[in-house]
């Protein structure tokens, strides 16, 4: 994140409110609803601000309903914000959709860009015309995509005959086809198996490295973030709770370890581990298993293990780094306190 170029995406106090009509149950409720209605407003995105610089790979993370898709829709110009400002490559997206459209590529994981009934290749041809892609670039990109994403054999099939993973790879290729400056990916790996996921991740990284494409990605699979992104923005109930590098998260939680202990006796509730040093929390306890979370700076690993050996008949111990998933879970729950 060098400071020399201006941000390609700049967002200030971006807010989106949805109006939802309030309903009461049953037939009477429905009739009442016919004649009078009250509205609730939901603030899906709440005064969000950030800058994204050319070539950045940003993961946009949050629980279900946190406001990720809503943000993406405002960035792409689909939704008009209730308040606040967005600028994407110098354009206010919803004011000049046509011009903005030329600069961006989008994949909405749950939707396809392609026409259901005609062969995949037709959709590529369509994009070629719509984005006015020069023939040589089209040809070159098609070769690269067929190679990297392995979609060459799919091109002649009608879209409805594709599997989910095959369709997603095609949609991804379509989004990148016109060499857009920015790519938005809203859950591009949803429902895919690990091999396709890996394939997609390496494709995105390659494109970023070769073309300096800016990528904004939402996902529930934190492995996507871990392997693709340098920066994460975490959003919760419409508000940003963390915005910074993935490495900073890791550094912060890097001293944390997770201990899995398997014991011989059948553990019951109430048999809790006694006399654990400060900085250790019990995450699971029961059957033959104990799971502990420990901060190495506060407690010594050896000391903890010593305590455990004294109390239990231990069969197996394993020590792991904390996964980014559980770190994020912790940030969701507790916020990011410096």
């Amino acid at each position: 994140m060098s400071s020399s170029p201006p941000p390609i995406i700049s967002v200030r106090n971006l807010t989106k409110e949805y109006k939802i009509a309030r309903r009461t149950e049953g037939f009477i409720g429905a009739v009442k609803y016919l004649f009078s209605r009250k509205y609730d407003t939901v603030r899906a995105v709440d005064r969000v601000s950030f800058d994204i610089y050319p070539g950045e790979l940003v993961g946009y993370i949050g629980k279900n309903g946190a406001g990720k898709s809503t943000t993406i829709k405002m960035l792409t110009g689909v939704l008009v914000p209730t308040q606040g400002e967005v600028k994407v490559n110098g354009i206010v997206p919803y004011r000049d959709r046509t011009k903005n459209g030329q600069n961006i590529g989008v994949v909405f994981g749950q939707r396809t860009q392609m026409k259901w009934d005609i062969p995949v290749i037709e959709s590529f041809r369509l994009m070629k015309e719509i984005y006015q892609i020069p023939p040589d670039i089209y040809k070159q990109n098609m070769e690269i995509f067929c190679d990297v994403l392995d979609i060459g054999s799919l091109l002649a099939k009608p879209v409805r005959k594709l599997s989910l993973g095959q369709r997603m790879k095609c949609d991804l290729a379509i989004a990148f086809l016109h060499n857009p400056k920015i790519i938005y990916l809203d859950e591009p790996t949803i429902g895919l198996d690990i091999l396709v996921k890996e394939n997609i991740r390496s494709f995105i990284k390659t494109m970023n490295a070769e073309r300096n494409t800016t990528v904004i990605l939402t996902t529930h699979d934190l492995n996507d973030i871990d392997s693709i992104c340098q920066r994460a923005i975490i959003i919760d109930s419409g508000k940003i709770v963390y915005d910074g590098s993935i490495d900073a998260i890791k550094a912060r939680f890097g001293t944390h370890k997770v201990l899995h202990i398997e014991v011989k006796d059948n553990l019951r509730q109430g048999d809790e581990v006694v006399q654990l040093p400060a900085g250790v929390t019990v995450q699971e306890f029961g059957e033959h298993r104990i799971k502990l979370h420990l901060n190495k700076e506060a407690a010594s690993l050896a000391e903890v293990i010593q305590t455990l050996i004294e109390q239990y008949n231990i069969v197996d111990i394993s020590i792991e780094d904390v996964s980014i998933e559980s770190i994020v879970k912790q940030i969701y729950q507790e916020g990011w306190h410096e």
Binding site: K73, V78, R97, G101, F108, I130
Partner: peptide, 13 residues
């Protein structure tokens, strides 16, 4: 069904 979203992100009138 929301697929108008696809038309909105394209550089077309």
């Amino acid at each position: 069904d929301g697929s108008v979203i696809i038309d909105l992100i394209r550089p077309l009138n």
